[in-house]
Design a protein around this nucleic acid. Structure first.
Lengths: 241, 241
DNA sequence: AACCTAACGTCAACCGTGTTGGCATAAGGG
DNA sequence: CCCTTATGCCAACACGGTTGACGTTAGGTT
């Protein structure tokens, strides 16, 4: 039988829960974000969500087909946050950099949620808007369309991939986080130069470097590569695979 | 109380399970990889593992402290696969490219497993060996040490991040996979040019581009950026953030 | 060769998870 | 004012990780 989930805009009869609150997709997504922040990326469950909203877990199935759909809704909310209030300057390189950093920041601001959503394609409105924006900025570089699309793909996937990776570190439960820091301090910093000479040589630099995100640096390197391929800029237009 | 997990090399008394097989970390990891491939990235469970090995689920706790430790062991096995049989040519750019592609390939060859392990730092032997190898190759570029470490960070994290992202797509259960393909076909390909002109304009190119991995292209762009910063090569040595 | 200890496999149980079918109730259009 | 049905609630199911108690047998010791 078809699942009777009523789309948000068609909702008419709204009955308060036993707690007195009237539910909505917005409220549920906000509660989910709160839960994720407080209990970690595995801390989102139908039961806990019901507890937080003071309603029965099964009630959520009137709003979403399942927990997976809740997660997709959270993802679209994050993309929305990334783009609200931004406007282009017209300089494609600055704009692309700003877009990448904003998207990355929006995800890593909610690491526990980002872990669950970053690698999902939703086709929801905010996602579509983001793609349109990136493409419109990239147009300013004046690349031939096939290359433009390839660069678009590399740029957006690099941004999302780093967001996911960095979010995963930030979202680790405290115990695992301390364990990883301990690995860096005790294992990497004390590797014998007999077996791992190169690691040993730059160990202090590594310890300082690896705590942060590599995204800004990786983004800059990618932008360099794009600049090299802008017509009439560089002569070394190597073919992109 | 301290968990009485005996390290693999200290194992002496080995009793066969009711099925007659004698367990080991190796056997368990192999069974886990098989399970993941067959049942998807959420298909690894202690019970199923017990079923596959014909032993009680709780037996696994004699070998690993919990399912999480099983996952870390799987991750180190994948890194090991990536590097076995590889040797450097001495040309840093070719070697770095080869290393990146091999690591990416090793993970995406086991996408369901990669999803679980890519963003974990284990400090296990194979991981350490991989880091040493990458650093030794990068040494050939002759960058000043602080820059070398920064490039190392960008390179390794970009590789792992793309591996995770691409693995996530490949590991989607069939239903979700078809759903995403449908999103690309029905939503993206038919976006009205009134609201999304740039997407609409390159829609056919997008459909062809987005099915594959952007990693090779992103890697090439990153290598370009590094090349620009090699001493005595380019003049535009922009500062890396 | 006998033995004794602990390593390791097994069993049963606990609690948390997503999800569903049936039921009750009150909201809101007529 | 009433009646339909949207929507919240309840109980139950199958599955998940993990653990504590219990046997049993392998292997070192004597």
């Amino acid at each position: 039988m078809a699942k009777p989930v009523v789309p948000e805009e068609k909702r008419r009869r709204r009955r308060p829960t036993r707690g007195g609150t009237v539910l909505s997709e917005r409220l549920i997504v906000e509660a989910a974000l709160r839960l994720l922040r407080e209990h970690g990326s595995s801390g989102l469950s139908a039961r806990r969500l019901g507890l937080a909203l003071d309603c029965d877990p099964s009630t959520l199935y009137r709003y979403f087909r399942g927990m997976d759909e809740v997660i997709l809704a959270i993802g679209d909310a994050l993309i929305g946050q990334a783009l609200t209030g931004w406007s282009p300057t017209g300089r494609w390189r600055d704009d692309l950099r700003a877009l990448g950093l904003r998207i990355h920041a929006a995800y890593t601001a909610h690491p526990q949620a980002a872990v669950l959503t970053t690698s999902r394609v939703t086709g929801r409105p905010n996602e579509l808007a983001a793609d349109e924006t990136v493409l419109s900025v990239l147009r300013g570089a004046g690349l031939p369309p096939p290359l433009e699309v390839r660069v678009y793909h590399a740029f957006i996937d690099q941004t999302l991939a780093f967001a996911a990776l960095d979010a995963a570190s930030l979202a680790l439960p405290n115990a695992a986080l301390l364990a990883e820091e301990e690995v860096w301090r005790s294992t990497y910093a004390r590797l014998p130069s007999a077996t791992h000479p190169h690691v040993a040589e730059v160990a202090p630099l590594l310890a300082a470097e690896m705590v942060g995100s590599a995204y800004p640096a990786a983004l800059e390197l990618l932008l360099d590569g794009v600049t090299l391929r802008v017509p009439f800029y560089g002569t070394g237009n190597r073919a992109l695979p």
